[in-house]
Each structure stands twice: as C-alpha cells, then as structure tokens.
Design a protein around this nucleic acid. Structure first.
Lengths: 235, 235
DNA sequence: AGTCTTATCGTCATCATGACGAAAAAGGGA
DNA sequence: TCCCTTTTTCGTCATGATGACGATAAGACT
C-alpha cells in the first residue's frame, strides 16, 4: 500500500513525498494551547494530529505552510507569526512510505474555534497538558515547537504575536506566564517591557478591565529582538 | 531532463527528491571559513557549492548529514557539532526537478585540508569574505548558517566545537572574534568565560605560546547554555 | 466616604558588564 | 644578571539591568 514509490524513474535516487505540518500555538483562557485535528483518513484514523498536508507541485515550502494555516484557521492577516521549525524524515515515520515533513511554527492570537476542513474529521484547541497521544511523530514535533516558542520569547518581541492588535501590559505578561508556565512580577515586567525601546508603543487610550485601575493600551513596536533579553526565571 | 518525476504513481501527490547539504564552518588562520566543493557534474558544473548529496532510501535525515560530513571531512569523532539548519524547497531551485534540501550546520575544529570525493572535482576551505557565487540557492543557505552560528555563540557553549579538545582562553576568544568579526577585551572575556559555571574546565597544565606568559589549558565543560548569555558588542 | 482591586511608579541592594590599571610569568637581548 | 617586551591573569570602579517589594493612582462597588 505504498503511496510513495521507493525509487525514482531512471536513476537510483529515492523519491519522497513532502508535507508541511503546523504547530499552531495560541494563548486561551490563560493557558498555552495547540491546534489539533482529528484524522479522517488512514493511517491513524481518528487520532489527534497536527494540521498539515502535502506540498503541491509548484509551491514553495513557506507557501504550503501559509496555505495550510489559512485553511485551518482562516488567519491571513498581518497578525500572528509563521516560521519554519524543522524537518523530520525518519524512514518509518509514515507507514504509507517515505514522507519528509517540513514543520512550521505559528503563533496566533486568540481566534474563534477552528472548523474542520480537508481530511480532518474535527479540529480544536487543546491545552498543552491535556495533549495525549498524537499520530506519526507529531508529539516530538509539538515538543520541539513549544520549546522553540519558549526560547524565542526570551530574546525576541514575538510575544506580541499572541496578542490582538491592541493589548495591555498585563495581557502581554499573561502570555509570558502561559508560555513559560511561571509567574512574573507585574511591576518588574511592566518596567522591562515599557523600558525596552521598540518593544511596545502606547496607543494613548486606556481600557477598563473588570476590576481595578484601567490599563493603558499598547501595540507592538518595531523591535524584533530584545536587547538585553528577557530571561525566564530560574527553575 | 527531469530526473525527478512531477507526480506520484497513482495519487496526485507531487514527488520530490531530498538532499542533505552541509554548511561546515571552522576557524582557520583567525578567520571563519566554510568547506566548499567544486561541482564535477551538471548542473552548475565547475561552480562552488556546499557539500551534500541525496538522502538514501532507508536513511534518516540526520544520518544522511552525518554520512556526508564524514565523507567530506573524515570527521567522525565526538569532536565538533552538527545540527539541522533549515529546509529549502522553492520550485525552481534545482533545474533537474523538484528537489528539497535539508541543510545542516556543522561546526568543526581546524582540520586537515579536505579531499574531494563523490561528485566533487575539488574541495577546499574558503574564508567567508572570499566566497563568491555559489550553485543553486547555496549562498542563501550559507548566509543562514553563518547567522545561526553567530547567534548561537551568544547563548550556548558551542564555541568550544571550533576548538581542539584542549585549548586556551585566548584561543577560545579568537574563535569568538573570528565568527563575530569583532575584537573582544581579553580581560573581560577571561572573566566571563571562567566565571560561567560549566563553560570550560581547567586541565591543570599550561602551554607556552610563542611569546608571553604561558596560558592555562581548558577543556569544554558540561554546560550547553550560557546564563546569562555572552552578547556581541553593539555595532 | 471607605474599600477593594489592579495598574503604575519608586526605591534599594545585588549582579553583570565595559573600561582599564596592574601584577604575574615566560623569553630575548644587552 | 637585569631590564624589556609580550601575553596571561587578577583587581578596581562606575554604570546599567534585575529581583524584591513599598507606595501611589485610578477606577468600580458598597
């Protein structure tokens, strides 16, 4: 039942199928969550898996990832962040044959619940501690993506990719706390964020929360990298 | 002349060839240098290119990269460092057809001159500023690899991968200076390196250089990450 | 008005860093 | 042997960033 042949036509080059799989992370309800689909086809029928699909014939890898992201989340705006994570191609990772997957990491703001499309029988956000078994080697890919996200919050301004266009410092801090799984001092965090040039820029308006003093609104600044970085608290 | 067919046998999945290409960096003569081969086959016959080759049928991606590294440098020891860099699969990047390359970054100590093997008509170390045109999209891959190496020296202990098993603090500093293209204060560098737990461990012996006070010998420590990182001087 | 809650601003000790002085440990030459 | 040069290694000092935490500001609610 090999979908993918094991050798090319004339030469001895092995032949592969290439997929783009996505680790789509968001922060919902104070927790880091990942977008998973329930597989509607064999193999791993009915199992949870990362969204993704085959790269098309005239398509770049990044374009395939972006297309899958739009199909699964509807997110096409300048919001969010998409970067290549890593590639996985162990010989036995897909029972259909030799499949190399190029994994991408997407960080998106809190979006409406996804709709199942394509080969998926269902799609939903799942909080990280609640993620169980995944199809293929997707558990490993997910772990790599989460670790990449945790590390990148330290030395880049990517945390704003989890936020809507305008946000408060507290919302930004809750992103860090959810991704890192650690509590941060609100006063020191406020000083660090507002004191780093280009991290965030004040909008000028304030918004009242449910309780307490209204908070200023900010939007993302021009800075990509944080100098000096914001280091996670020691474990 | 398409070596790689454009569609799979029964389904509509496009079919790819997969290669593993290597960005092998070292520090020689005080400069960052990269291992390049001169192509002995079409396309790009006679052009400089990164070493690499097709991933075999029953081979993992990492295994293919390690095999190519051994074939090109003879380096198989626990020395050095090898990690996946990124994948490149733009539709037109290889005139033979649809080829996705998984690029790897290798950091190795100063090795004897490489011998040309496989499809290569020649192989040599080239200092970075002297690198001209490269085949395929290898210039882009090389640039990504160099930037990855520069960034990783900041927050990991990977600089020791460029050094022999025993080295002096000055040799380690020259690695940083070559990779970053910047001069570092020897006194502050010495304090930072010896003060970071697990970065380097004293061997106990000293070695006399050509001039000046003999320097203590160190070997790499157990630390993988530097806390806090060693930041490059501002440009 | 008083209270509660959260946002924001300050203070202070500590740590890491950049700039740089100075001592230690070798060899070479007068 | 005694400087002189060179390089390694140790100190000093001012500055900037950080962690811990006090204090004030600005709303809603009773």
């Amino acid at each position: 039942m090999a979908v993918v042949p094991e050798a090319g036509p004339a030469t001895g080059y092995p032949v592969f199928a290439v997929t783009a799989d996505l680790v789509v992370l968001t922060v919902r309800e104070g927790a880091l969550q990942v977008l998973l689909i329930r597989r509607g086809l064999e193999p791993y029928l009915g199992a949870w898996a990362l969204p993704g699909g085959f790269v098309r014939g005239a398509e770049d890898l990044d374009a395939a990832a972006r297309r899958e992201l739009v199909e699964e989340t509807g997110l096409t705006a300048p919001l969010g962040h998409l970067e290549q994570l890593a590639s996985y191609g162990a010989p036995g990772r897909d029972p259909r044959g030799r499949v190399v997957t190029v994994a991408y990491l997407a960080l998106v703001p809190d979006l409406p619940a996804p709709v199942a499309g394509g080969d998926a029988a269902g799609a939903d956000w799942v909080a990280l501690p609640a993620v169980g078994e995944l199809a293929f080697d997707h558990a490993r890919i997910l772990a790599d993506g989460v670790e990449r996200a945790r590390a990148k919050l330290e030395y880049t301004a990517l945390a704003t990719a989890f936020c809507p266009p305008e946000f408060t410092i507290t919302e930004l801090r809750e992103v860090y706390e959810a991704v890192w799984g650690a509590r941060l001092d609100p006063r020191n965090f406020h000083r660090k964020v507002t004191g780093t040039p280009g991290f965030v820029e004040p909008v000028g308006r304030s918004v009242a929360a449910e309780r307490g003093r209204p908070a200023q609104l900010f939007r993302r600044g021009a800075a990509q990298l944080l100098h000096p970085p914001m280091l996670r608290p020691a474990p």
